[in-house]
Design a protein around this nucleic acid. Sequence first.
RNA 1: GCCCCCAUCGUCUAGCGGCCUAGGACACCACCCUCUCAAGGUGGCGGCACGGGUUCGAAUCCCGUUGGGGGUGCCA
Length: 468
Amino acid sequence: MTTRVRFAPSPTGSLHLGSARTALFNWLFARSVSGEFLIRIEDTDAERSRPELIDQVFATLDWLGLDWDNRGDEPRQSQRAELYRAAVERLLAAGAAYACDCERSAVDERNAAAGRPPGYDGHCRDRDLSVGPDTVVRFATPDTGSVDIDDVVRGRVSFDCVNLEDFVIARSDGSVTFLLANAIDDAEMGITHVMRGEDLLNSTPKALLLRRALDGGEPPIFAHLPLIVGEGRKKLSKRRDDVAVENYRDAGYLPEGMVNYLALLGWGPKDGVEVRPTAEIIEQFSLEAINPSPAGFDPKKLAHVNAEKLRALDPEELLARSEPFLAAAPWGADDFDRDVFLAMAPEVQSRVKTLAEVPDMVDFLFLPQPLMDEGSVAKAITNNELAVPLLGAAIERFGSVEWTAEALHAATLELGEAHGVKLGKAQAPIRVAVTGRTVGPPLFEALELLGRATTIDRLRRALPPAAG
RNA sequence: GCCCCCAUCGUCUAGCGGCCUAGGACACCACCCUCUCAAGGUGGCGGCACGGGUUCGAAUCCCGUUGGGGGUGCCA
């Protein structure tokens, strides 16, 4: 039997980091065993589901590079209502489910009055109500016995049936809930392994009970993934944390950076090599190596992994990936010179952690005039008594020096010596005059690319009027 | 409240009874390299939650405690 896994998002929001990690692990597992990775849309809740979000989820999975094997034919639970409804009828007919017209508040009151813990009390089990617009359908869980799950990452987990309340499988409007649709579809799609977040562990015995009641056959193997937690060791939340994968894309993270980092949350390669090509991660991946404890999301490490991926790109690739960010840069399209960019690319790569930082690293090369950073100007020019003489000397010297990074480097060194300072001090005012900042890529390479005329023009402009 | 899960440096992890005076990575600190800033190199800081067992031997196995988290919906 071929291994078959699924990722079953609910289109109620943009793709969440936790969901992306779940999708990734399913995908990694499927690819590592030459199995199938399928997608199913769990939109049984008409109130919350936003159909337009489905394409967004697909787009994000595409961006991450998680290809699925039923593309274009992803089951949508909202379109399978009849199938589910038939299952509800069967359960009803078999006496495995019953109608219930209890209001939540009534249940709570009864529990409070009787001193019982919260949860449905089975009030309607034997009332023999008929199903109608004012009733839900509940599944009658066994009163005794237990449901055991042999979870790949957690070992055997046992649930006593007495603690399993009679849960709702069909709403009063006739639609079915996730538990039922999920159990039916996993059986029907021939899913062999179910990998999902640990927050679903408690619902697993219910799914198993349903599957059994519906003669769904051998249950899948379960693997409940550790939750990804945020700052306070709590489940990542939309309020506190930046959880939308799209946000990371827009912030300049590489998909392979996200994939690599996410793969490290709850799993680690045996050989300890953390940052590596996705193909290798697939090779190394194994279900048994997933660890059960919650994993904290660390933006700093994500950034580091991303930076490593960025450095691994060749210049052409960097340019291509940077395109969206360069398009939003402050210079005109005509001012951009791809050859200049490509020449500077290696220096840019070792200095940025995200694509979003790329434009700022090269803007002075394409802008008619550099963006002058106030603090930098003050520090290196205004409040630097050596700035004027140094700049003046540079204007003089750069007029005739051979225009190569090497010669410019040597010339600036000599300029510094003549004024009693080392190269570090000597290049500072020149750097600010030409690039607008005290920090940036290597100066002399940049000057070479910029050309003699532009460089000298910028040096002149940096000189105070009186001195100029 | 009840049910379930988890527990190695701040964080991600290696470790699956002796190779552990616990290894790596991120972050942090120092030094080196150096035209700034990075990158890179070297070194440093820092951890098996606690208490009982089991065993010749426990980070590793068992029990308990404590702590954390998740679930407890006509959400998924």
